[in-house]
Design a protein around this nucleic acid. Sequence first.
DNA 1: CTAGGGTTAG
Length: 681
Amino acid sequence: MNGQSQSFSRTLKHLFSSAAAADNTISVAKCESVLYHCANTKSVSSTKKIHAYAIRNGLLSSHHSTHFLSLLTAAYAVGGQAVFARQVFDRLPQRTLRSYKSMIRMYAENGSSREALRLFVEMLESGHSGPEKYTYPFVIRACGDLLMLELGTAVHGLALISGCGTDTFIGNSLLAMYMNCGDTERAKQVFEAMREPTIVSWNTMISGYLRNDKAAAALMMFHELVNSGVDADCATIVSVLPACGYLKDLDVGREVHLLVEEKGLGKKLSVWNALVDMYAKCGKMDEAQSVYDSMIDRDVVTWTTMINGYILNGDVNGALEMCRLMQFEGVRPNAVTLASLLAACASLPDLKLGKCFHGWAIRHNVESDVNVETALIDLYAKCNYISLSFQVLSKTSKKRTVPWNAILSGCILNERAREAIELFKQMLFEAKPNDATFKSLLPAYAMEADLQQAMNIHSYLIRAGFFLRTQIATGLVDIYSKAGSLESGHKVFNGIIEKNRDIVLWGAIVSGYAMHGHGNVALSLFYNMVMSGIKPNEVTFTSVLHGCSHAGLVDDGLTLFNFMKGSYPLCLRTDHYACMVDLLGRAGRLQEAHNLIKSMPFQPSHTVWGALLGACVIHENVELGEEAAKWVFELEPYNTGNYILLGNIYAAIGRWEDAEKIRCRMKNLQLLKSPAQSVLR
DNA sequence: CTAGGGTTAG
């Protein structure tokens, strides 16, 4: 106990002994000075005593009560007593700067950011000046927590006006806020304007870049930091290592590892855990293992990281071995461990193993964790046991969004579009949908291909304010295309500004026109896309080529194909050749089609030969038809359709015996088919 | 008094 708190407790004692003696001469001022100490020492029990004393002795009704109550508010707030603080605060005749400050701080600290900001705004509106430099960081953090970029920017301005612009703490808070809101550029500006960035500033930048999917920028920051002469600390290490892992940049990862050894930064377990994770993510399980072996202390995170590492590198047995060792060491798995094990079982998929881990989750009492529940729903859906997914769902709290998202995508996976749509309607009574919800749900509407339903979900999205996002717009374009309204799809497409149109959105509109036979529109949209600076990918090439072939645009198709060969040779896939063969073949240019196949830089697939065969049927070309058939019979021996196609060519030109022979061959194969297929499975 | 940091996660 230091001198100050000793004198405080003396004062408190004196106060109460005087009270016991019914000495009402104890002044409000005295109580106030005690309260001031209560706030400084975060002493809740003393605060309560003073509060009770004040009530008993009618101090609250005096004209001094504003000052007294605002001190009382502060004392409760500092002690984290939200309910008491609020009660006193609401009874204040006048809300003072002090009371606002302490309430804002309390709410920001206990996670009620919205409440904190409400009070902050009210404080400004009621004519108080801006907060002082110790309150700004709380307000700024609250803006960041709620992703309120506009308000955050306004607070930034206010801080500048009040002359707090150079404060390091406020600067660092601003960095974190902008990063949280996804505005990396503004964060960078603030960082560059800082006169003396501390290690915290650097770390905030590094981790912020990573959280905004800019791992390369995070690494650049790290290198700048190393060159600037500021010493890295533990937080730097655990911020930069995930970036190395994400980029699989083993060189930088090793550099960081060296730094840890040289500067003795390995005092915390989290640093070693991050190193293990980095090596695992870079695909170096042997090095991860050796870091792990060198560790004296290990916690559940270490084990989980190793287990994940083995899963990530496709070594399920290694992961299982780790589980056994972990159990042997007496370390209990947590929800994270089980969620990732279950996710691994889902991606295999391995129902039996998944059920074992479900059991393990129950034994370790984590089966009602949202992450675990979600992983279970996903697991059972991917194993085609969606009824079990529903069982898990029925036990969840339902107020969370993620399990619903999992069941929706599970329904899509099991081709239960109707059910997905029904579930979504139920979901709306319980939880708030987010972007991921629609990512899972929209394909259901595309499967239903019902224009009325398409319009329903579209109008819902607009009402709910979801219409801006590219990904969701893409889903809508796809739905409208499949439901047959290219016009509506195009309107949605036009609603996305050019800057926000990504390859997937372009792909959706192009394929929409292509699949409905509007090859010319598909083509011109495609060229618009290229002009707007979007690099086409295999998928867009396929759909636009498809469009050309469906619309009989032979020369356009050839031009496009040659453009591909010239500019995007690495994109060329077997599908593209199949489209071209189909295109040339339908136009009767069979020889050209055949030459194209022969020029292919890789083994032609059955689809390529199949396209030629199909064209040979239309144009009754036996010679090439037989050549194509020879290949498809080899590549796809159990597809009876191919035999029928060749038979049709023979029949068309009157070679009845050959047609009959092929028919027999097909029949014999059909007899073989069932046992053969069961072996193939 | 106030700022950054580890394992899941499509």
